[in-house]
């Protein structure tokens, strides 16, 4: 990889104060994400994987340590619109059409009308939703809605794509298809992707690096670089390399005593 760090975290800690005392969502987390990486965060609930992604997006403020996003502070990066964020739920506005939803961030960022139309069209094609621009979200299936929300995150061409369990609420069959589509999209656009997931096969299938985390306090227990090639047909999941990698991830999870 080229030594252009897109996300650089050093000794990052984040503590929430709650009624039951402080909760260490992140403790001394150090991690570097390079340009063009596809990094998955995996671990049980409460391990801080979502919190880390939110801190990168400046939706949470770390209590200690340093965090740089594209060479800036997270908040600067947010204001420069350096990343697109995809949540677990599509979060589309029911009163806007699919095309209207996708062009919403573009409106906020002040793109011209013609530019908005052209970009919306392009990302609709990219996520295979051409022809559905005029539909309302509630007229589409859950998988199509999530694809639209990915299109929305892509529309303004940020270099970084942060995805928080984007396919968590979808069924296995739809999830497989979207995984394939996401890899395809990543190859075409060369974006840097941070991806939170609960699923070991999903993490192994998609990532160039897998970050295994564990809770109480939230920390990184293992970072696994994937030996798999960038071209990954679905069948790769039956190869011994894939299975060995999944085994490594499972070992990493066990190491963190994460299911006690």
């Amino acid at each position: 990889m080229i030594d252009t760090a897109v996300v650089q975290a050093r000794d990052l800690s984040l503590t929430f104060s709650t009624a039951d005392g402080p909760v260490h969502a992140l403790k001394d987390v150090s991690l570097t994400i390079d340009q063009g990486d596809f990094v998955s965060f995996i671990g049980p609930s409460g391990c801080g994987k979502t919190t880390f992604l939110r801190a990168v997006a400046a939706l949470e403020t770390p209590t200690a340590g340093t965090l740089a996003v594209a060479g800036m502070t997270p908040d600067e990066a947010r204001r420069r619109r350096a990343y697109g964020y995809v949540f677990q739920a599509p979060g589309l506005y029911p009163w806007r059409t699919i095309a209207g939803n996708i062009s919403l961030p573009l409106e906020i960022m002040g793109f011209s009308r013609a530019d908005r139309q052209q970009r919306t069209q392009r990302v609709l094609d990219l996520v295979d939703l051409a022809g559905f621009g005029g539909k309302f979200p509630w007229q589409l299936s859950g998988g199509m809605q999530q694809r639209a929300s990915i299109a929305r995150a892509l529309a303004f061409d940020a270099d970084i794509l942060l995805m928080d369990e984007p396919f968590g609420a979808l069924d296995e069959i739809v999830r497989d298809r979207l995984n394939e589509a996401l890899l395809d999209l990543w190859k075409k656009t060369g974006k840097t992707i941070g991806f939170v997931t609960h699923s070991i096969p999903e993490a192994v299938y998609l990532s160039t690096r897998i970050v295994v985390m564990s809770p109480r306090p939230g920390r990184i227990t293992r970072v696994i670089d994937s030996p798999l090639p960038r071209d990954r047909p679905l069948e790769i999941r039956d190869t011994p390399e894939f299975i060995a990698l999944a085994q490594q991830v499972r070992d990493g999870l066990r190491e963190g005593h994460s299911y006690d």
């Binding site: 929430f16 104060s17 709650t18 039951d20 909760v23 609930s45 409460g46 979502t50 939110r54």
Partner: peptide, 14 residues
């Protein structure tokens, strides 16, 4: 607990 739930707890005490 997810961070959202924690943020909720934080807000409730406030």
């Amino acid at each position: 607990m997810t961070s959202a739930a924690m943020a909720g707890a934080k807000r409730r005490t406030g």
